[in-house]
Nucleic acid binder design. Structure first.
Length: 328
DNA sequence: AAAAGACCCAACCGCTATACA
DNA sequence: GTGTATAGCGGTTGGGTCTTT
């Protein structure tokens, strides 16, 4: 199939938008709403192609866009999710769902121009989030886990897209959402809170760490208090997944480790795989996170061993580095 | 002060997915 | 089932700005 161009390129303006053009576009959208992008430039009196107008609105003019410096919290979220999603499709869109009022384009730019370089300077491979000198875990299991998690995130996004479509019946005359994967806080589906659940698990693990072991609970059966927290978190994550209507096992291949099938678990099994030996959910390793300060530090071994610093310590250290980097 | 290089980010390109006639 | 329009997405670029020499 030969695709026709989205617009006649001859005579159309390209490059930076002028304030006058922005004003025309804004005025037109205020009056008529957005949509029908192909016809919009003519109606709005703009010498631009529809796609250019759509991108200008989506990435810049939309009133619900936050501009300016990224907060540390936002940067932490980006790095965490980038580690989780790797090169999976839709990763920038997925990350954007966790950052209120930020566009995927802005996040992508911030990653490419700031965060990636900072990680490189810290000796961390920004693609794999592993240390370049091999200080941290480079196991196949960890890499496979990242891929595993990325597959899950892709499946989740597909489910979200379906939900969005189903919740926008044709009877609704409002224009469709600008980006199906962008939600305000109030409209964000529950399943998008998996990151929060994951952070809760990390906190739970760290809490256990402080209770029992100078290194981590993950080497030992957690103390009763930590077990309770973990069990609670485990069911919470399962609940989140169930609320999304995502069927985990049939949608992703089984996880293989040294010839042993590791499949069949829910996402919480993935998350909690190494968190608790006594919880009965240790089928899969958690996402690999590099740990600072210990040449032998590992995270993500099946069977549950995290040595060295806790995960939150890792993130705190990383963020401190980012702050230091900014100050430098 | 001026030139050169580095940095930043808005905007574009090309592709795929989806909706619809 | 097919073709077309539109939307969404990641990768890349170009030019303005900042920093260094």
């Amino acid at each position: 199939m030969v695709r026709s161009p989205c617009c006649e390129k001859v005579g159309l303006k390209k490059g930076p938008w002028t304030p006058e053009e922005d004003q025309k576009l804004l005025a037109h959208i205020e009056k008529h709403g957005y949509g029908s992008w192909r016809a919009l430039p003519l109606r709005a009196g703009l010498q631009r192609c529809g796609k250019s107008c759509r991108l200008r609105w989506t990435n810049y003019l939309r009133p619900d866009i936050k501009r300016g410096k990224f907060s540390l919290q936002e940067e932490q979220t980006i790095i965490q999710l980038h580690a989780l999603l790797g090169n999976s499709k839709l990763r920038w869109a997925a990350i954007a769902t966790h950052l209120d009022k930020r566009t995927d384009n802005e996040i992508k730019n911030h990653w490419n121009t700031h965060l990636r370089k900072r990680l490189e300077r810290m000796g961390i491979d920004p693609t794999t989030h592993k240390p370049k000198n091999g200080r941290y875990n480079t196991s196949k299991e960890a890499a496979a886990t990242l891929s595993h998690m990325a597959q899950w995130e892709s499946a989740r996004l597909e489910a979200e897209a379906r939900l969005v479509r189903q919740s926008n019946p044709a009877a609704d005359n409002k224009p469709p959402p600008l980006r199906s994967t962008t939600f305000s806080n109030s409209s964000r589906p529950r399943c998008l809170d998996v990151l929060r659940a994951w952070q809760g698990l990390v906190a739970a693990a760290d809490k256990g760490s402080s209770l029992e072991s100078p290194t981590s609970i993950l080497n030992f059966p957690p103390p009763p208090a930590a077990t309770s927290v973990i069990a609670s978190a485990h069911s919470k994550v399962d609940e989140l997944i169930m609320s999304c209507g995502i069927v985990w096992s049939p949608m992703v291949p089984s996880y293989e480790r040294e010839g042993e099938s590791m499949g069949g678990g829910g996402i919480s099994d993935v998350v909690l795989g190494a968190v608790s030996k006594s919880s009965g959910h240790q089928n899969l390793p958690p996402p690999m996170l590099p740990f600072a300060g210990d040449d032998n530090a590992t995270c993500g071994d099946v069977g549950g061993s995290i040595e060295g610093e806790s995960t939150s310590n890792y993130w705190n250290g990383l963020l401190n580095s980012l702050v230091d980097d900014d100050d430098a």
